[in-house]
């Protein structure tokens, strides 16, 4: 029971703390980030600059590379196939956005409590779960000019047959329609979760003030869905710009190259069966990157603003 007090003379000052201990709070987040940063650098950032470099080469990917300066870009400048792809890319961007209002519409439709609503929700969500390749195949059969359902249905109205995927006038729209099917489901699920967070009191208040239908939707519900809309916008834009698998499966870029987009054209000249032009493909990739950069900048800017506003 002897509580012996430590004499002053024997007091030991705490040891000098290590460098890590002193800077723990500043350093630890970076330590945790290192693997992520490393992978992001190796797989995203460095390849971007590599693409810039490759786009100045004439290289078949196997043999000796030759520096040709900006010759690849000069060739792009009057390459008809490039402009077709660029035009299709913009058509994709514009029409793919239809998935957002369509998704909102279906979400509003499904946002009610009826017996079995979960089943309906899953059914509407289903197309997003299946692979794009399967979607492409299914729509390929659907559009088949001789045996497909689409033309049989047109026949009921005395129309058609229309060879959707074999006609350069319709082919891009036909593929976008196929792409909208899963994309709409994706936007729908985003809005369904968003709708859960809509404040019922505000709805009640709006109702007392006499807001109805479209006005209610536009001035009360949609503003509260802004975070969901933002995400839907981001994923749809990205989806439109990387629309590759559907084109590859449904038309292989045809007929005579009229359904190509930049990402597919890049693949074709650089990596496909007849592609041996890494430099030219990289030049296409750089153009695609610059287009994406516009959107990426906008996204980052608006996210930054949001953070700042808090």
């Amino acid at each position: 029971m002897a509580n012996v007090a430590v004499p002053q003379s024997e007091y030991q000052a705490p040891k000098e703390r290590g460098w890590y201990k002193r800077n723990e709070i500043a350093v630890t987040p970076w330590l945790f980030l290192i693997p992520g940063i490393l992978f992001f650098m190796v797989y995203v950032i460095i390849p971007i600059f590599q693409s810039f470099y490759y786009s100045t080469l004439s290289w078949d990917g196997l043999g000796e590379a030759q520096n040709v300066g900006l010759a690849n870009y000069a060739e792009l400048w009057d390459d008809g196939a490039f402009y077709t792809s660029l035009k299709n890319n913009f058509i994709w961007l514009a029409l793919y956005l239809l998935a957002i209002p369509a998704g909102l519409f279906i979400a509003l439709l499904l946002n009610q409590t009826v017996w079995g609503i979960r089943l309906y929700k899953s059914l509407f969500f289903f197309p997003f779960v299946i692979s794009q390749v399967v979607v492409g195949l299914v729509f390929g059969w659907f559009y088949d000019p001789t045996f497909g359902l689409f033309n049989i249905a047109l026949g009921w109205f005395g129309l058609g047959p229309i060879n959707v995927l074999g006609d350069e006038a319709y082919v891009t729209y036909g593929i976008i329609a196929a792409g909208l099917w899963p994309q709409t489901a994706y936007c729908m699920i985003l809005y369904l979760t968003g709708l859960n967070a809509v404040d019922p009191e505000q709805i009640e208040a709006a109702r007392l003030d006499g807001a109805k239908r479209l006005k209610m939707l536009w001035y009360v519900v949609v503003p509260q869905l802004k975070p969901a809309t933002f995400i839907a916008f981001v994923v749809t834009i990205i989806g439109a710009l990387r629309s590759f698998d559907l084109i590859s499966i449904m038309t292989n870029g045809g007929p005579f190259g009229s359904s190509r987009v930049l990402s597919f054209y890049m693949f074709e000249v650089a990596l496909s069966e007849y592609g041996f032009r890494m430099g030219y493909g990289a030049a296409v990739a750089v153009v695609l990157f610059l287009i994406m950069l516009v959107f990426i900048t906008y996204f980052l800017y608006s996210m930054y603003n949001e953070e700042k506003g808090r």
Binding site: G254, P255, F256, E273, Y274, G275, F276
Partner: peptide
């Protein structure tokens, strides 16, 4: 290969 690609596309067109 490259010529074949451009060529066959022209033939299809």
């Amino acid at each position: 290969a490259e010529m074949a690609k451009v060529g066959m596309e022209g033939l299809q067109e």
